[in-house]
Design a protein around this nucleic acid. Sequence first.
DNA 1: TAGATTGTTAATCGATTAACAATC
DNA 2: TAGATTGTTAATCGATTAACAATC
Lengths: 209, 209
Amino acid sequence: MKKQHVSEAVIRRLPRYYRYLGDLQAKGIVRISSNSLGSRMGITASQIRQDLSCFGEFGQQGYGYNVKELQTEIGHILGIENRHSIIVVGVGNLGHALMQNFHFAEIGFSLDAAFDVSPSLVGTTVNGVLVRDMEELDAYCRDHLPDVAVLTVPQSAAQPITNRLVALGVRGFWNFTNKEISSDSADIQVESVHFADSLLTLSYRISKR
Amino acid sequence: MKKQHVSEAVIRRLPRYYRYLGDLQAKGIVRISSNSLGSRMGITASQIRQDLSCFGEFGQQGYGYNVKELQTEIGHILGIENRHSIIVVGVGNLGHALMQNFHFAEIGFSLDAAFDVSPSLVGTTVNGVLVRDMEELDAYCRDHLPDVAVLTVPQSAAQPITNRLVALGVRGFWNFTNKEISSDSADIQVESVHFADSLLTLSYRISKR
DNA sequence: TAGATTGTTAATCGATTAACAATC
DNA sequence: TAGATTGTTAATCGATTAACAATC
């Protein structure tokens, strides 16, 4: 039975399911039970079945789940078929690294453009994507209506650029600036990657007390 | 009253407290109540007081918390004073970007060395840190006993390098390889940064249903 | 002193786990 | 058919929130 509200905890697990199912497929595994998937992932079979039940019925009694089918379903839930368009704003080391290494297309994103202020970068191409002048940002967004912006600008630019992009209709922000960004506009989604927070939890765990 | 077991949820919030307290200090704010901090962070005052009570008593009735003092205390809980030594293994785009931009020292880590297989990188210096040949990894670790390794190697190298480092006594792994790594050894801590998982939750949230 | 705010205990809420009938 | 495994309901567990006495 589908749920109307899906908790954050469940949503955070969906990409993990997607990833594990991809690995299983790569290994040529065709079917899997919640029990077996759970023990691979270190979670209970109950949790997997409970999680999936938020979205529908994807298994078969006595059989389990078809790996490929379930992956496709979860991909669908995650919105991978939408081919969201995405732009990189700020092509410093990190923006550059993401453009070079991160497989946007594999998870359904279309990386269409990048922007920077540096004259030495503008006009160059990174992994097939043209770096444009930040001046062109407004015109580009009006023309192409990108769904998501990767924020890899300096901290000081984070909020002003966000405001500008929100005004231009960008609804999703993948924020690497280590600054909390916000917007009054409803319906704006922000996903922040806080490297320091992540490493600090590791610091905590390796510190004996 | 100090707690013996501290939940994962609490630990994940500690770096956020640390960050917010840093921002407050930068703004010259000297004292803050749990209520005021909570409304800035979008959480309840109760939660803050409950979280802190796992580690001790840091406030004063009728006054609240001294911003600087509390930050120092939380930094201490997170192990920032330990000056954990850290090495970067794999100096590709991402490893390079982290070395260049990420302020290890600010959160108490000492970035001491980097390793790569590429002859064009070996011997160069990135942000003051020498890139060494991967061949030297074992000898280096035996000599310097680094606490943490940043894994920014290709996926295929993730597990073998981890095994090697575990055998050499490295206890913490900051894993950017998009592969789950594991170890039989007790006391090994892994913190993985899964970019795709992060972006997929954003994909979910901007997909209308 | 009066007001503010803590630390902590108790109440509530939500998430995880267990159990099991349904059924492939 | 017998065995396996689902989807779902119920039970448990843990985390968050509320309340309040203590006290600065």
